[in-house]
Design a protein around this nucleic acid. Sequence first.
DNA 1: AAGCGTCCCAACCGCAGGTTG
DNA 2: GCAACCTGCGGTTGGGACGCT
Length: 335
Amino acid sequence: MGRPPSPAKDGVKKGPWDAEEDKKLVDFIAKHGPGCWISLPKLAGLNRCGKSCRLRWINYLRPDLKRGNFTAEEEQKILRLHEILGNKWSAIAMQLPGRTDNEIKNYWNTHLKKRLIRMGYDPMTHEPRTDLMACLTILAMSTNGLNDLLNRTPLDVNAVKLDYLKQMFQSTDAAAPNLVSSISAPLLEGSPILNSLPQLENQEAAFSLGATTTSGHLLQPLHHSITTALSASPTDLQLDPQPTFPPSFESMLFEGTAAAQSCGFFQWDDPAENISDPWGLESASEFVPSFTTQTDTPASNPADATSCSRIHCGDGTSGRYSPWTEILFDHPIIQ
DNA sequence: AAGCGTCCCAACCGCAGGTTG
DNA sequence: GCAACCTGCGGTTGGGACGCT
C-alpha cells in the first residue's frame, strides 16, 4: 500500500527566484507558517517544487538571517567546530545564529579551506601537512621552485631552498614540515636580491621567491621555523637538523596564547579580507626578524607567496595562484 | 573595449533516515 | 513489515560579477 505517488514534476520552474516568487512565498509563510513543503507551492501559487521553496526560504528569505560578511569571531567558531564536527554544516550552523548551513559551507569552501591549504594545513584534519604531496604542492606553488631545482640555478636564495629540499627528500622524520616552510622563504619586496635577479622580471618569478601583499600582511606557521632558524644564525645558514614545527593553530587558539598571535593565522593574506587586524599587528615584520645569508643578501618576511591568493609585485602588477592540484599535476616533474 | 580566466554563491542534485499509510 | 513519501543534509554546479591583459 503506502502513500499515493507524488504528482508529476514536469513543467516546474528551476533556477533563480524572482521578486514576485519571493513575495508569494514570504506572504504564504507569513500567513500559514512553514508547513508541508510538498503542498506549499500549489497553495501559494508557485510553479516550483517544494524542495526549491524550502531551500529558498531557509537559505534566503527567512527573516532571522544575518546578512553581511562573517566576523572574525564567526570564522574562529567555524574553524573550531569544523575541527570537531567535520563537514556537518547543519550542526555548525546551529552554533551560528542567523547563518545557514549552505552559507557556512560556501564560506568554508571559498575562503577558509583555501586559507588552510595555503598555510600548509590539512583542511580536514586541521593538522600541518607532512606528507610528500604537501611538500610538492607547496614547492609547486612556488612556481619556479621546481625549475630552479632542475636547472640548478646558482642563486643563493635558491641554494638555500635546495639545501632544504635535499634534506626534505632525505628526511623521514618530523623535520619535513620545516623543510617545506623553508622552500617558500620569502624575500622583502624591493630588496636588493630581488632587484639583482634578472629572473624576477615577471610576477611569476617573484612568486617563486616570495612576494608580498599590498597590505604587507601575512604570517603563517610555515614561516615560523625557517625564520627562527635563520634568525638564530643570521650570517650563516646552518640548518637545524631537528627543527620543531609550531603547534596547530587550533591548539593555540584554544589556549588563547601569544603563540597564536605569533603564528599569525588570523593575519589575513588578502587586503580585502583584512577587516579588523584582530591581533592588532600592523606588519608581519614585527616579529619576523630579517636575516643575512652568507652572500649578504638581506631579507625579511613580509609575506609568503605560497599563501597569497593575489600576489602584488613591486611594479604594481598582480596575479593569482592557481589551485595547487593543477599546478602540481601540470608540472613536468610530475608528468 | 573586448576577451578571457577566476571567484563566489544561490540553487540544484542525489542520498539517507525518518515518517506515514 | 513494506513501500513510498517527506525532510534534511552534504556535495556539486551554473552563471553572474569581477579583475586582468
